[in-house]
Design a protein around this nucleic acid. Structure first.
Lengths: 274, 274
DNA sequence: CAGTGGTCTAGACCACGCG
DNA sequence: GCGTGGTCTAGACCACTGC
């Protein structure tokens, strides 16, 4: 540094907001975050080049890059190699989660007609550990698996990674094990094939960071998390008819769930000690 | 580098897994990830020191740190300053989301008896923009707000950040605007105070990266996302009784939702074009 | 005190997208 | 070609923890 001033980051603009002892990258991130939040840097706008920020904040390039890394992890900005760094559009598509069942019974069609289905795999396979747990079977048990990617028909953007798992004795030999797109909602197919009715469900909601595969398949920017739902449907006897899971890019999608609130005390739901 | 070999990262161990053109930090992350996944580095185990990894992989310290940053962002490891870097325990606490209502009607008590409540604020205030939207009021409208932090009684770890918002004309002047912990589930209090019944709900599920405040309040490791639910409850006329939101540390909590599946086609849920 | 991770620097070269 | 971000290096010093 030319003069003796230590810890000077755009003196006067931000020195008083955080203690002077906060890391430089933190203070740079804070200053940029404030400009984004208050509208000086609106969504879609390009940030100054990293080298420009180096001059402006009087810190080194790696420090600037660390600051941008913070904002990237917060989902506020997105960098495109060779082009620049941009303020992200914060709009999320709204997708229905549970109105699904009643809606599909009504219209007897695919649950998600605004999406293009791509069946990656359909057939027998070993159940993954996290699915085995909710299915109540040993890890590695053979099940019928259907893996799919769903794309937005308009933008062609990937919007969901999904998979369904069925007990072998129920689904093997049926078209559930064939890679054609089903003619209507899967659960209606299962009900027809087996004569059993979907009557109760359990959903597990998980937020986590994506695997490298998910990151590529969903076209996720670095640092963006995913929303992962594991859905287990049973008949009235409590036998598992289907376990399905979906993974959404959380920076682009919010899930909406609408349901009635019971007016009566509820004993049916096992009160699991948690 | 002493010899001319470019792109040599622990030659022979990993060079063939990814193309030799993959970034070094990527290949280092991959090698460590594999050791974690296959159990060579079990949960809770300490990784070798960064300087040790420098020697082992023959790359520079910043590169090792970048690789560890990848794994940290995936939630696989956690660094503790002055101590070391550890493989994270992947267990998540299971918390119920929806059984809530029926359960609480049954037992007439607090929804979450395993948690310690800390009321941060109770009283009138301006409704935040994202809540105003679901409430159907102008941003900045005055509402009654209750903000709370919930801690695990056993471990004393923060487990949820929550807030409830009520229309002023409904809640002002009642104990809902006072900072004492309510004697039973809030919605039962509201039903008693207003004589109106909670009859329908909408939940929005969002996964995102935490703000700095949330990161501190929930004691989140760097790179861990949060699960954010915005819950809107209405009476049978469609009037909003309460909007509440909860933010959970996604690396420690999974939300469980159990519900019956309708046997009849459902027309009630507005089919919103999405 | 020694060992750990956290911050910061001043460079270098590469890969990408566009004009 | 030029400007952008992506990768990588060899250092330095600081801050935290536990012995």
């Amino acid at each position: 540094m030319p003069c003796g001033a230590k810890n000077r980051v755009e003196e006067g603009t931000m020195a008083d907001e955080l203690g002077a002892r906060a890391p430089k990258y933190h203070r740079v991130a804070d200053a940029l975050r404030r400009e984004i939040k208050n509208g000086d840097l609106p969504p879609g706008h390009r940030l100054p080049a990293e080298t420009t920020l180096v001059e402006r904040f009087r810190v080194s390039l790696p420090t600037i890059r660390q600051a941008l890394g913070v904002l990237r992890a917060e989902g506020l900005i997105e960098s495109r190699h060779g082009i620049g760094t941009f303020v992200k559009e914060q709009r999320r598509l709204q997708r229905r989660s549970r109105g699904r069942y009643g809606n599909a019974r009504n219209h007897q069609k695919l649950l998600t007609h605004h999406l293009r289905h791509e069946i990656l795999f359909a057939g027998r396979g070993q159940v993954p550990a996290h699915i085995a747990e909710v299915m109540g079977v040993e890890p590695g048990t053979e099940v019928v698996i259907r893996r799919r990617h769903l794309f937005n028909k308009e933008t062609n953007q990937p919007e969901e990674i999904g998979a369904s798992y069925f007990p072998v004795e129920m689904a093997d030999g049926t078209f559930l094990a064939e890679p054609e797109v089903a003619p209507k909602a899967l659960f209606l197919c299962v009900e027809e094939l087996t004569g059993r009715k979907y009557s109760q469900a359990q959903d597990q909601w998980i937020a986590r960071m994506p695997t490298a595969e998910e990151s590529a398949a969903l076209d996720l920017p670095t640092g963006a998390p995913v929303l992962h739902v594991i859905h287990c449907a049973r008949d009235e006897n409590g036998d598992v008819l289907e376990v399905s899971e979906s993974v959404w890019p959380a920076d682009r999608v919010v899930l909406i769930d609408e349901y009635p609130i019971d007016q009566e005390p509820d004993d049916s739901a096992a009160p699991s000690e948690i």
